[in-house]
Amino acid sequence: IYAKGSYYKQTYNKDLIEIGKVFSDKYREWAWREGRDFFPPELYEEDTPPDIYIKHKIKQYLEEITPASLDQIQTQYAREISALQDIRPHAIITTNYDNFLEMIFTEYTPIIGQQVLKLNHSSIGEIFKIHGCISKPESLILTSDDYEEFTTKKKYLSAKLLTYFAEHPLLFVGYSAEDPNIKSILCDIDEIIATNNELIPNIYILEWDNEITRKALPSREKLIAIDSHRSVRIKSIVADSFDWVFKAFGANGAIEKVNPKLLRAILARTYDMVRCDIPRKTVEVDFQMLENAINVEGQLPKIYGITTLTNPTALNAGYPYNLTQVANKLGFKSWYHANKLIEQIKDQTGINIKASDNKYHIRIKVGNTDFSKYSEAAVILLNSVKNNEEYNLEI
């Protein structure tokens, strides 16, 4: 095995990413010939990515070597893991494929691969698996093609991660920071946070050395080469046990005894309370209006378009119907006919009663979905329109 490894390193000038691409191609060829019985049938469908075979094998291998539970961890490592858990970091960023971190931080939510770019996150209690996860083998960053795609999108990832680096210390654990993706992200951080090759103040790299002694004086800084002309300086910690390091980082106890999953839920609901149909740039107010908003409880949130739902029962009583129920009360079987009456009002008056919260309609946001509810006044109004009677809008 070693001889074969040396052959590929020699052939491809030690470019491990390019070697990953070669291995992927060879796995695909083998999978479609004598290796066919080693893969599930769905991997042979035409829309399956060609690198799925080696990634499937990586998934199987990591599942085999990953402990089924923390109870299987040897005693000397159990102390380190317990100290790591006590840090309770705001977020974890990893290039690891396996699910071991999810086992350690059971209350944290994994964000896998491109989900990091697509989803809104709560900035706490998340494991950012930027190189993918074996739970989704197709997400693994392994081949040169994967790295190229990552590079095209990493600027946005860097921007998201910068918010963490600016507010919290970053600890690289068991990692040499030689991965090109990590280097490029560090380069972006260096451009913004540090200038003139200054030390990046709150980034640490923790390296293991079993031969270090108490009298040793390892370097307190590490220089990481970004390219042939540039490097970044970060703080360095060298230890033969990570136990005391984790305890030091966990001594702060900022969110001790707080469930990250609960915090995520609270933060998510806080963001959902902000209406998306309000002015987003300029809110014009005069001094008298501002003074009144400060002195009268509940007025300031109204200026910003934020409402407080203190009585859900009253809301349901005031707006008890969805559009289908409104249609049924008007004698129709489908919501479509009630909606046509609303459009008729818009054509006749220029007012769309669904475009705002008013005495006829209110829009409620639940999760990522908006729901429209209608009042008894809406039923009366639409009944007048249906019967070609005169009506007055009170918006």
Rank of each mutant, 00 (worst) to 15 (best):
D98T: 09
Y44F: 15
Q299E: 13
Q288V: 15
R264V: 12
S144G: 14
I127D: 06
A216S: 13
A68G: 13
N392Q: 12
D277N: 08
I189V: 00
S176N: 11
W208H: 15
F105L: 10
K215R: 07
N210A: 03
S176C: 09
I141N: 00
F371D: 05
R220G: 07
Q60E: 14
D357L: 07
I52T: 01
T307E: 03
L393M: 01
F332A: 12
Y336M: 04
I200C: 04
A194Q: 09
K386N: 00
K333A: 11
Y164F: 14
T95F: 13
K26D: 02
A78F: 07
L70G: 09
V285Y: 03
Q325K: 01
I224K: 04
L300N: 09
E42H: 15
T106S: 06
S123D: 11
E394N: 00
A159K: 14
T213F: 12
Y61V: 05
Y175C: 08
G35R: 09
V326R: 02
Y61T: 03
Q76S: 05
Y44V: 07
L140H: 01
L84M: 15
L382E: 00
C276V: 09
Y44S: 03
W30D: 05
P312Y: 14
G174E: 10
L393E: 01
I112R: 05
V283H: 07
H361M: 07
S144H: 09
D179Q: 04
F242P: 11
E167L: 08
Y360E: 00
I362N: 10
T369R: 15
F287E: 13
V238K: 04
K281V: 13
I1F: 06
T369M: 15
I1D: 01
D243W: 12
I141M: 02
E18M: 12
Q72S: 08
T349N: 03
F150I: 09
L217T: 15
A293R: 05
Y77E: 07
I224F: 03
E34G: 07
V245P: 03
K386L: 00
V283C: 08
E148W: 04
K261M: 12
D286V: 14
S241T: 13
Y147M: 13
G350C: 01
T75M: 09
Y27P: 00
K160H: 10
I93N: 03
